Amino acid sequence: MFSNVNHSKRVRFVLFILISVISFIIIYWLWPKYDRLPVLDTVQPFQMESVHDDKYDLNNDKVKLISFFYTNCPDVCPLTMVDFKELQFNFKKEEIFGKDVELVAITLDPEHDSKQVLTEYAKSFEADPKGWKWLRGTKAETKQIANRFQMQYQRLDDNFFSHSITMYLVDSKNQIRAIYDMANTKKPIDKESIMKDIDYLVKSE
């Protein structure tokens, strides 16, 4: 009698385990899969003057890391460009620089940041124009494009601006897939996370 009871318990236990495993598999495959880099927004395509290539078109089927800056910026902008320089090196090492991925720097101060000023500024960071684009537009164009990224900025005086410190990871379909903080004196940009996110986008597109 006891033997039959124990056998029955073992059978029920085994059936419980099997049903649990099967249920887990069904839930795993049918549960909605969420992208680790969800679409945050879509940027309307634009063209801007590029100091090295005449015109830059956002519609170029590449992944971009976009940062707004200005050359008179005393802190976050130059610190961020130093980190961009290291990212440029890493992208070249991965053989994706210029081919699959671009760094894009858009000046907020086109009145001061002429083509010549930006060219010299780019040289100071050893920027390779093959995959590191430096852009400028008119004041109206700059404002319009900044608004597309919900980028906030305001001139404080003749030389300085107050501006958001957000960078944008944009995929080949012009969709914002991640945002990051620019560098500051206490913390560089999170290059490791950015590299992982860009690698993910390049391989999934």
Rank of each mutant, 00 (worst) to 15 (best):
I96A: 03
I19P: 15
G137P: 02
V82A: 09
N184T: 02
D199T: 15
Q154G: 03
T71P: 07
M167F: 05
K123M: 05
S50P: 08
F84M: 01
V82T: 13
K62M: 08
V39W: 10
Y56T: 11
D61A: 11
K115N: 12
L135V: 07
W31P: 08
E141R: 05
F89C: 09
D197E: 08
F160N: 08
K99C: 06
I179N: 01
L58C: 05
G137R: 00
I145H: 00
S8L: 15
E49H: 03
I22L: 15
L15W: 09
Y200R: 10
L40Y: 05
Q175R: 15
S67C: 10
K55M: 13
Y70H: 07
T71N: 06
D75W: 01
P110E: 10
Y121N: 02
S50R: 02
P78L: 05
Q150L: 03
I27P: 02
Y70Q: 06
D113N: 13
P45D: 12
Y70L: 05
F2S: 09
E126R: 15
T107F: 04
L65S: 05
I194M: 14
K187Y: 01
Y168E: 01
P129T: 01
P129F: 01
M81E: 09
D75L: 11
F161R: 11
M167A: 04
Q144A: 12
S67A: 10
S172H: 11
F24N: 04
P45N: 12
D197V: 04
L40T: 03
R36Q: 14
L18T: 14
L118S: 03
D54H: 02
I19T: 14
V202Y: 11
W134A: 02
L15M: 14
K133Q: 14
E86W: 15
